[in-house]
Amino acid sequence: MRRLRTSYARVWRWSQLLALVILELPAHAQTSVAHLAEYHAVVTFATQREARVTATLKPEAGVLIPSLLLARLRGDHLLEITASDAEGELPIRTSDLPGAVLLTLSAPSSKPGGLLQIHYLVTSNNPLERIPLPTVSLPMFPEQRTVSIEAKLPVGMTAVGEGFPVLIWHSPVQGETRLFDVPSVLAVKIRTDNTVTWRSRLMTASGLSTVGMFTFLGAGSLFWYLRTQMRQSGRS
């Protein structure tokens, strides 16, 4: 029995060693990654066509945020971009990339691990449906919901549909969500209270996809039923 146990242990040890060798093959060299500790963005709508964004970013201790990206969405204009930290306004350079605006901070004036605030105005000729949020190449710490996104609407406006990320509305004009990671846009459809109809509530991404799912299931079931009926009638 002891011999059996010893040989079992040996086989187990060798199988572990072999698995370690084989499974380690695709592993790339693990490098330590810097993280973002906190992220908080507040999107304040002045009208349907204008919103002001203030994003507060806190990297982990000793880490510097060198640059940020703001997605350039169709029809949106990004204006009055400024940056600040606890000590006041910071010099910032903006450069246009194919689909984004790159915000570069001058390294000496921003403290590693310190709070950084980005402010800007988003305007559009059409009602705003997507607001770009500043993103950095640093991931958040895993398993911690330290990203918060807040939307504030003017009185008399209301959000229609779920949007992205899904906000929890504490009141008709204030919604908030907490996430694990930083999104690059806030997609929210806002309308004046008197223009919201059942049709506008249904014609949202979530409404249409849910209808699509039930249509798919219904059509599939009907097809299956008709096929079975045809087979049975063929047999009889």
Binding site: L69, L73, P98
Partner: peptide
């Protein structure tokens, strides 16, 4: 696709990343 405002917009943003 809808949440980002279209595939071409997403493509341009990815190119910037």
């Amino acid at each position: 696709t809808y949440y980002f405002g279209g595939i071409s917009t997403a493509g341009s943003f990815l190119k910037s990343i």
